[in-house]
Structures are given as structure tokens and as C-alpha cells.
């Protein structure tokens, strides 16, 4: 992805392109898009925040793209964060899993989806949603038995 995203960054400024991006600054939570959309691990509120943090790490490491769930409920599919060249599994994505952040980047709307290339994480408020208090670890097997 590094080359693609370098290319993306390079091409974003080209005014002749038909699908120009829009620079936005948005605040929200870095989510595990698989568990959020699929619902197989529980309702959307259960697969966010502290309770789902470990699972989000596994999913990101396994290749699931991360998303940014904005305060208004909009989900932005993250193509890149900062200098981290991957949409999943990169150091930055793993570090920010389940964190509430304010991101500055370029928005591309296509096929009904919102794609964002995050140029800068302006603010990182860490994990603010303490869902483990209501749901525990989601799913419980995200943490191996011998590590609980």
C-alpha cells in the first residue's frame, strides 16, 4: 500500500481529476469496520471502545481496514493514516485502535462510501468509550484464556 498511498497523496492535488477530494477535519472513534458492519460480535455499541479493543487489534492485524466513526454516525473508510502506508495492521492503526481522534485529511465520496486519507491526527484522546463496563470483553475469546 505504501506506493499506492504515496501515489494517492501525489495525485490528490491534481485539479484536472474528476473526483477531487475535499479536505475535512473530523472527530470520531477508530473502529474495526468488520465487526461494526457485520454485527456478528454484537450490536454496534458493543463493538466499540475499551470492550472491543483487543478484537479490533486482531482484526486490524489480520487485514481489516479501520474506519473512523464520526460523532454524527458517519463512517469514513480509512485508506491511510499519516505516514503509515496501510489501511490496516500498520503501527499507527494498531496504536489508535478504539481511540477517539480528531483527524485532518482528504475525503473522497465514491459509490456511496466515504473514503478518507488522514494526513494528520490532530488530537488523540485515547480510548474514551468504556464499553467494557457494560459488555466486558467483546467477544470474550478475543483474550486467550491463559491471559485473562
Amino acid at each position: 500500500m505504501r506506493q499506492l498511498l504515496s501515489l494517492l497523496s501525489c495525485c490528490l492535488a491534481l485539479p484536472a481529476l474528476a473526483s477531487e477530494g475535499t479536505r475535512i477535519q473530523v472527530t470520531g472513534e477508530i473502529i474495526d469496520t468488520w465487526c461494526y458492519y457485520s454485527g456478528v460480535m454484537g450490536p454496534p455499541d458493543a463493538v466499540r471502545g475499551s470492550g472491543h479493543h483487543t478484537c479490533a487489534l486482531w482484526c486490524s492485524a489480520g487485514g481489516i481496514p479501520v474506519g473512523l466513526l464520526a460523532e454524527d454516525g458517519t463512517v469514513y473508510m480509512v485508506l491511510k493514516i499519516g505516514q503509515d502506508a496501510q489501511s490496516a495492521g500498520g503501527d499507527t492503526q494498531l496504536t489508535l485502535a478504539a481511540h477517539t481522534v480528531t483527524a485532518d485529511g482528504m475525503l473522497y465520496e465514491r459509490d456511496g462510501q466515504n473514503y478518507i486519507i488522514v494526513n494528520d491526527v490532530v488530537e488523540d484522546a485515547d480510548i474514551t468509550l468504556r464499553t467494557h463496563e457494560d459488555y466486558g470483553v467483546v467477544p470474550p475469546f478475543a483474550v486467550p484464556e491463559d491471559a485473562r
Binding site: W34, C35, Y37, S38, G39, V40, M41, C55, W58, C59, G62, I64, P139, F141, A142
Partner: peptide
């Protein structure tokens, strides 16, 4: 946690 849930894709 993909392995247990791949079959659930259509439930998205």
C-alpha cells in the same frame, strides 16, 4: 476475530 465469523458476512 475473523475465523469464527467469516460465514456471517451476509449478515452484515
Amino acid at each position: 476475530m475473523l475465523r469464527p465469523i467469516a460465514a456471517g458476512l451476509l449478515a452484515c
